[in-house]
Amino acid sequence: MTDAYAFSYPSPLEGYEKLEPLTDERAEDGKSLKNPQHGVLSKAYTEFPDPLSKGREGGFDVHIYHFQNNPDQAAYARALWERIRREFPELRIYTFFDRPVGPHPVAMFEVNLFTPAQFGAFVPWLVINRGPLSALIHPNTVESEDERNHTQRATWLGDRIPLDLTIFRPRKE
């Protein structure tokens, strides 16, 4: 696993520094806090924030894994792949691999998400329907950050599967 502290992070409050302090006033439910309302939704509802890709590769990849030597798991994964292709035809869905490929140490298939709406529809659906399978959800930013995107910025559904990160490191001559 990559050391998360090896990276720099801009302040989450960048652009909000000079605003009035927030209150601790409670909402009607008595538990949550009242937030200042300004009548404008965050742009994150309609477009991925920078530096996420808005190009050909999409903002997020979802890799759904199955152990190729487990016939029951492979059959479940193939059925899930077919269901996703039928229910989400607008998504880019790649070949069903029956062997490891790239940094992925077991078989998998990949789905690309291009908009926050696709992410918001597909990821909750996958949480419920992935069955015994693990899934890696990672952002796509610049190629030089592939290792970070697959580790520090990644999210897992189910058990984490160790990736072969050497593919992202320059070869030593």
Rank of each mutant, 00 (worst) to 15 (best):
G30S: 10
H138Y: 05
Y5M: 14
D164I: 05
P116C: 09
G58Q: 01
Y9H: 13
P51Y: 04
K54S: 05
A121W: 04
A75H: 08
P49L: 00
A44Q: 10
P49C: 00
K172M: 09
H150W: 07
F67L: 04
E82V: 08
A4W: 05
R92L: 05
N35S: 07
M108N: 08
I167M: 09
D24P: 03
I167K: 12
F119M: 08
D164A: 06
T141C: 15
Y9S: 12
R78P: 01
T46G: 11
S53P: 12
L157K: 05
T151M: 09
W156E: 03
T115K: 11
K31P: 11
G30M: 10
W81N: 04
T2E: 15
R78S: 07
P132V: 04
L22E: 13
E14A: 14
W81T: 02
S144L: 01
S32Q: 13
E20Y: 02
L22N: 14
N140K: 05
D61K: 01
L52S: 10
N69Q: 06
E145S: 10
E90G: 12
L133M: 07
L165F: 10
S42K: 06
L136F: 04
R160Y: 08
I167Q: 11
N69E: 09
A107D: 02
R148C: 10
S11N: 15
K18P: 03
Y5F: 15
R78V: 03
Q37K: 13
E147T: 01
Q118L: 05
L91N: 07
D98C: 12
R99N: 10
P71L: 04
N140T: 09
I161T: 06
R169T: 00
A27R: 01
F67T: 09
E47A: 14
A107I: 01
E14F: 06
N69C: 02
P71K: 03
Y16K: 12
W125C: 00
H63M: 10
P162E: 14
I84C: 06
T155M: 11
E110P: 08
A107Y: 00
G39D: 06
T23P: 12
